[in-house]
Design a protein around this nucleic acid. Structure first.
Lengths: 206, 206, 206, 206
DNA sequence: CATGAATGAGGTTTCATTCAT
DNA sequence: AATGAATGAAACCTCATTCAT
């Protein structure tokens, strides 16, 4: 007699809400374990069996939560991007102040450090055309918006070529993230963060 | 006059040289097609059958030339890295002048533009731990050397933190390469090259 | 009353026990068919496809039960040896009486007659070094023990050279088994059994 | 310029006989190497490539000497059996004297010791029905003759059941050979030979 | 006679997905 | 909701044999 069966027998039946909570938390668990395995072994090499085992459920049940492997990676990608977007430009007014720009830099470093796995997946996805196709729309829209905000920022700074400037900055951040992700234990993330602020932030103090 | 040519008056077997020629050209063809497919579909998703079909040969023959898929990608990686290393720092003295640094920047842009596929594979490999493991030694040695040369360069410039400076520059170049590779048709490579020279080259004129 | 049976009123999933039953019977079936094919065609020539076809299942399912062909033959070998060991020397005191010796001879003949296939596999395995290596430990330990018991028996009989005597007897039994196995329909097993008792048993009557 | 080409140029052309000699010795070499590999890896696992490499010739040339792998093993088996038959009962009168019987025993031990590989192959072949079928006629005829001669011998000795007696003796010799072959380094062949003479020879002295 | 490139069938194995219970 | 048995397509790889030279 398991915990749950005791509950079933002696308590009132679970409400729809309770079931949904269980469902959501299990879904999150699956996505978490899937992410780990995707980055550790690659999308193809990480099997549904692996993921199910890591999540402590049966293969069959997996398909109750994600109707295919493709849907699974898609949802992971979307979730990760949404979290990233939410953090950036929190007031959503589309205008970047110097403080917000510095905040953005610092937050980006924090996010990369704290979600290494997701960002590793992100780059992997970007580089695999068929996987990229699955996820394209969900991921690229927000990224373009972000770039646009940056361009506006540089425009207000009256830089000669704000478009190129924004691309350069974006590429730099991508490159840093990628290098950190490849070898988190040896990459001097904190030093690099300071270096970026020194060279790219417009705030006086630091 | 070989033994064989004396004995076989009617129909000479292929000479060793002929065999070598066949092998070399077949090998090059396979590697070329394999590279295309690896970047188009990813290492796992590109099957030996695919590659064989693209190269116009039978599956079995693939294994006459590369005894496993792993060996195949390894050889492709080594070849690409070798070409890259050969181009960079041609006089090989390990010391970078301002002119050489600018030359390096320009060459890097050229190489990325002309070997898009290889560099796409390069990033893909980096991000797939099991594939990375296959290729690690062949690829990382040269890269580390390069970084060291850069650090020495910045040291001579008496920058405050030459190590971080070198990493930042490397990350920027990686990021640019990656962004270009993801969408070569829309990325303004030439503008970006000029931007990099403007911000990072120490040569006076430009 | 399990958790599951409460929750699922309409269609219960299989119980653990049901799954186990399925697994056991399938496994036994596969092993039986595999044994037949291994002896009929040899280990290498008997393909997984063959075995699956004979067992009436898909190739893929084979690997749900035995994770490789090697594991399959190993399990068959262990099972066969265990049955043989269990039958021999039932009281397990390691000391052979004259009656037990005669019993051993008779049982050996019976076992060979009734498990022709297994013993054919046994000899086949012994003679294929790579296959033998797979199975070595599981099979040789018990066999050596048996020989030792025989040596002790001959020692107590005060024979001049009990070691050689035991080897001779063992070789004879092996030779008989092999000859019977090669052509069960024509080999006069019963006559030979009597001949062995006549020449090798120490019991007075027969 | 190889040895052979020198010969070709300066000496008179090889006679048909010389060519045949070369052919024969090469054939023998192939058979020898093939035998080694068949016993080391089994018939299926030993590839034509392996054998060709060991014999120092090309795969293609192999087929000039043996038109298939099947023919190759057949010829090896036939050759080995012929050598065995030639040694036994040299005067071929079909009647065994006591001296000849003892000679036969001793020779059998010698042959097994000196042609371990062939006898290993012999047993392997016997136990693999499809391979056995290839070789059946060539091998079984002589063996049956031999058994007949032994039966006659035991008849003249006026034993109760000469047929069974002959089978027992044959099985013993087979069993000894098999046990020796399985572990030549540890099997006490010489002791066993003496034991066999002691128990089975009718010659007085020894 | 001699080579090794080339083929194609078939081998073992993996895995996303479906399905009966 | 939950299980794992079951499938089938497709993956990597091997190898006897053929063939052009």
């Amino acid at each position: 007699l398991t915990d749950r069966s005791v509950i079933n027998l002696v308590m009132s039946p679970r409400t729809v809400k309770q079931f949904e909570t269980i469902r959501e938390s299990r879904k999150a668990l699956i996505m978490e374990k899937a992410l780990e395995l995707f980055v550790a072994k690659g999308f193809h090499a990480a099997s549904i069996s692996d993921i199910a085992r890591q999540a402590g459920i049966s293969k069959g049940l997996m398909y109750n939560y994600f109707k295919s492997k493709e849907v699974l990676i898609k949802e992971i990608a979307v979730k990760g991007m949404r979290e990233f977007i939410d953090i950036f430009d929190p007031n959503r007014d589309g205008v970047l102040t110097d403080e917000e720009f510095e905040y953005f830099i610092n937050e980006s470093f924090r996010i990369v450090r704290e979600n290494t796995n997701f960002w590793k997946l992100y780059f992997t996805i970007m580089l695999q055309p068929p996987v990229y196709e699955m996820v394209k729309e969900e991921v690229m829209g927000p990224m373009f918006e972000l770039l646009q905000i940056l361009v506006d920022y540089y425009k207000r700074k009256e830089l000669a070529d704000p478009g190129t400037e924004a691309i350069l900055f974006g590429a730099l951040m991508d490159g840093i993230a990628m290098n950190y992700i490849l070898d988190p234990d040896h990459f001097p993330l904190e030093e690099v963060r300071k270096g970026v602020l020194r060279k790219f932030s417009f705030k006086d103090d630091m």
